[in-house]
């Protein structure tokens, strides 16, 4: 592919593009992406910016337990958002917790996307028995509530694994459960777009020069069906984070020793009525802000990429 555009001109082209204009002029979207980027950066840089290491038991002191946030009466300036019953810094726990939540979200979305795209392309292009086979599987997956399947999957995997491995395998189990329940959406979307694209004349032209089906699928059809997939991926990122939080809240997700946002909310929930509200409220707010921001981004992307709304 000779004559690559220089990075400079790529950037200016992007800044002048329709997509960027639509982004720039939507204040809600700019705010949502700012929140998302802020939480992403905070999570990524947690080991460097967190005031404490919540996993280092030697730094914990029960004298510091259940301290309120700094601005409340009895607050300690070392613990901005207060501490939990173990004396752990809530802010640090949130930073490390959102790391796990985001990791689960991104990895499961990426996996589900890859599986869904491949299944959708193959089903839509070849049709017939191949299509029927994959779509019946998809129907079965769709006939169960997502959270039920996720509970089932994590239950089965936990049953199959020895007890001492539960905590270390928790992350993988979560990712697996979420992937298994969400790939169907990508597969269905990609399949229907592929069925439209495969009878377009540029596909015939590629067939006429003897391109093999998989070459046509990945070099011709895939770039043309990616738009809706990206939209679903964004919205599903928020959903995956929520499923993770729900599973962790129900106690089948991340263990309290390595908490995600959902685990923090579950653990903090138990102290809510004893007046220790900060342990549950701050992780919850973070989760709400993250999910809302990602959802708003997804909505914007859906509208921006939909030519009918232009």
């Amino acid at each position: 592919m000779a004559l690559e555009a220089s990075p400079q001109s790529r950037l200016t082209a992007f800044l002048k593009s329709d997509l960027f204009y639509r982004f720039r002029t939507s204040y809600v979207t700019v705010a949502a992406s700012a929140v998302t980027v802020f939480i992403l950066l905070a999570a990524l840089l947690a080991p460097w910016i967190a005031p404490h290491d919540p996993f280092d038991v030697s730094t914990l002191s029960l004298w510091d337990s259940e301290l309120p946030p700094v601005w409340a009466e009895g607050g300690d300036p070392r613990f901005l958002l207060g501490t939990d019953n173990q004396g752990r810094d809530v802010l640090s726990a949130i930073l490390y917790g959102s790391r796990i939540s985001l990791a689960v979200g991104f990895v499961s979305v990426a996996l589900a996307m890859v599986i869904g795209i491949v299944v959708g392309l193959v089903s839509g292009y070849f049709g017939g028995a191949v299509d029927a086979f994959f779509m019946r599987i998809a129907d079965v997956m769709l006939s169960f509530p997502t959270i039920l399947v996720a509970l089932l999957v994590s239950g089965i995997v936990r049953g199959a694994l020895p007890r001492e491995m539960h905590d270390s395998a928790a992350l993988i189990v979560l990712v697996f459960a979420i992937t298994v329940t969400t790939w169907v959406q990508y597969a269905r979307t990609v399949r229907s777009s592929t069925m439209v694209e495969r009878s377009r004349e540029y596909v015939y032209a590629a067939q006429l020069v003897g391109r093999k089906p998989f070459a046509i699928l990945f070099s011709h059809i895939l770039p043309n069906v990616m738009g809706p997939v990206l939209v679903i991926a964004t919205i599903n990122l928020a959903m995956a984070i929520l499923i993770e939080a729900t599973l962790s809240f129900l106690g089948v997700g991340m263990p309290p020793t390595n908490p995600s946002l959902g685990t923090l909310i579950r653990v903090g929930n138990e102290y809510l009525f004893s007046g220790v509200w900060w342990v549950v409220i701050f992780p919850s707010l973070t989760l709400v802000a993250l999910v809302l921001a990602v959802n708003l981004l997804g909505d914007w992307l859906r509208d921006a990429l939909n030519p009918k709304l232009r």
Binding site: R200, E201, Y202, Y204, A205, L208, H220, P223, N224
Partner: peptide, 16 residues
């Protein structure tokens, strides 16, 4: 043996 198609908007891959 090659072919020229009817619809010039569908016969060229828009992403290429």
């Amino acid at each position: 043996i090659q072919m020229i198609f009817q619809d010039p908007y569908a016969s060229l891959n828009p992403r290429w």
